[in-house]
Design a protein around this nucleic acid. Structure first.
Lengths: 185, 185
DNA sequence: GTCAAGATTTGGAATAATTCTAATTATAAA
DNA sequence: TTTATAATTAGAATTATTCCAAATCTTGAC
């Protein structure tokens, strides 16, 4: 199961990073492996409570930080809203759809891109992230038709899977940090 | 002066984007031009109050959003903390120093990098951002000596300028979303 | 010049995200 | 078993951001 996998993969990297692999950390890691939809800390917390009713929000933040520091998870900071977490440690970038707020993993080899960056002398890079924004194929298809209110929960794509969206008579739900644009004259 | 420049550059792009260039928006844009140090909304607010004592936080957020929507400013989301704002609209990426929290602009032509990304059919990219993390040259130099507490305010680099830092007897001040690592045995 | 409509600003409240604190529990090493 | 340290917990506090209603400002029509 995913938590077995979490056990196998997590122990070594965590203890090597100076952290203990506690039941809570194994569980949080398992949650991230189980549904790779870039959840926020709050979503992880709600999911974690199902098997660990007494887990606290502080512990979830502690677990996520430990996983990040251990190189098992990365933070994805898209806009002014809550941070998302990604458990896919293969080289890739994230695509964020401005219409449905979906987050998609996109395969991307970054070694050569890094090599092209003219870093000033003395700087050392430890992390490299590419973030894309735009409109996913599902939303593009819908926006090319008429904008009709549709049912369906906006959510986050999982490894490129298009997802149902809700269009509400204007330019989709706005991401955090994006107030409604005035009508153009 | 910078606000004159803000006036010239902002008017066209804002009205073309459906926004009015109000005195508040011009002032906020001028603040970003005046000191390109990737300030947060709160820092912009504090600076803005010096010339506009009655400006409110909601207005600052509104102004920043309008500037972003108009393509005059970009959001920089580095960690779990507050969003930063960048007024440099030339193609570049950001380097975030994990030791001093400085943010540095790094020249980087991204066109060919974009071309290398295998986007699934139907996706359209409107924004592309590269984020780097690591240790800047100044912090690397200090960390290579002994870790001695030094005075000086950590701050954000401005276009690659190294800045004084404060090392506090451990691995520098931690960024948001990074609790202290336990001592390694 | 007046009026209406819509955009924007304001002050403050509310919400959301995250961090902090102190006490307790768990774990590992001696 | 004891001790030291890491981790968890519950809840409070802080920070970041959004929302609301009223007021103000701006623009276009008349």
């Amino acid at each position: 199961m995913n938590e077995d996998l979490a056990d196998l993969k997590g122990t070594e990297r965590m203890t090597n990073s100076g952290y203990r692999l506690t039941p809570q950390r194994r569980h949080v890691y398992g949650i991230l492996l189980q549904k790779k939809d870039h959840p926020t800390a709050n979503e992880v917390f709600l999911r974690a409570k199902q098997a660990l009713p007494d887990i606290s929000m502080a512990t979830v933040y502690n677990c996520l930080d430990a996983l990040v520091q251990s190189g098992l998870v990365t933070q994805v900071n898209l806009d002014r809203g809550a941070t998302h977490y990604c458990v896919n440690m293969e080289d890739h970038c994230h695509f964020h759809c401005d219409s449905c707020d979906g987050i998609f993993d996109v395969d991307y080899r970054s070694e050569w891109a890094k090599a092209q960056i003219p870093m000033p002398a003395g700087f050392s890079i430890t992390h490299f992230q590419v973030a894309l924004r735009g409109i996913c194929s599902a939303c593009a298809a819908h926006l090319n038709r008429s904008q009709v209110p549709r049912d369906g929960d906006p959510g986050r794509g999982e490894n490129g899977v298009a997802i149902p969206i809700k269009i509400v008579g204007k330019e989709g739900p706005l991401g955090k940090g994006k107030s409604a644009r005035p009508k153009q004259t």
